[in-house]
């Protein structure tokens, strides 16, 4: 038995899940999304697993950048897919991408998480995020960069977080982000412009740019 703080999972169940995931990848074509969703709506466990496999990482990343730690991100990711399971019988394809629905569920989970937390971190980001002149690739550790970005994202509103994460982490187009947020592309571009300006300021990139334009060496 594998014990976790809130769940005791039989090992044979884990094994079953792993096996089913491999089988699903072979059985269900990855781009036959609508058929997979329909099967999942009828309680097909393999279809549910295929949907999970397809979107789990994206949802996890989206949540991870918006919560305080990886454990909470994992729990919320599980909640998102459980909600997906509960909502699947009533889900209808309306033209919007299926993942838009999942991201909206995830956003709602994060909002609920923030409400439960009752606080947002107010740390001085200037100390954490000030650019020391080195490129990200040269950062000491990837984990530190991820942590720095996560802390930076938490200074933004939910919409701004969603735009930054989906546009530059998930590399979604303006149209896709607009669909997920339920907004127009123009609105998404405005949010993106405002958020990047603030983020550049947090990163100290504007100061560095002014330094560069004046011909001064750093």
């Amino acid at each position: 038995m594998l014990n976790t703080p809130d769940l005791v999972i039989p090992l044979n169940l884990l094994e079953c899940c792993f096996k089913s995931l491999f089988i699903m990848r072979a059985v269900l074509p990855p781009d036959d999304l609508e058929a997979t969703v329909e099967q999942a709506q009828h309680g097909n466990a393999e279809a549910v697993g295929a949907l999970y496999q397809r979107y789990a990482d994206a949802i996890y990343r989206y949540i991870y950048y918006r919560v305080d730690n990886a454990g909470d991100a994992e729990d919320l990711t599980a909640e998102v897919f459980i909600r997906m399971m509960e909502g699947l019988p009533n889900y209808r394809f309306t033209g919007a991408p299926f993942e838009a629905w999942l991201f909206r569920i995830a956003s709602a989970r994060v909002i609920d998480y923030r409400r439960r937390q009752g606080r947002r971190p107010q740390a001085k980001l200037s100390e954490l995020l000030s650019d020391d002149g080195t490129l990200p690739e040269d950062s000491v550790l990837h984990g530190q960069e991820i942590e720095a970005l996560r802390r930076a994202f938490q200074q933004f509103s939910g919409e701004e977080q969603t735009v930054l994460i989906l546009r530059f982490v998930e590399r979604k187009s303006h149209r896709e982000v607009a669909d997920i947020l339920g907004k127009s592309e123009t609105a998404v571009k405005s949010i993106q412009h405002r958020a990047l300006a603030q983020l550049a300021s947090l990163f100290g990139l504007e100061a560095k740019q002014r330094h560069y334009l004046r011909g001064e060496s750093s």
Binding site: R61, H142, V169, H193, L196, E206
Partner: peptide, 17 residues
């Protein structure tokens, strides 16, 4: 700077489960 901020996000390692 704005594009650099976006590039920094995009270039960051992607957390995975």
């Amino acid at each position: 700077p704005l594009v650099q901020a976006a590039v920094r996000i995009a270039a960051a390692p992607r957390p995975r489960l």
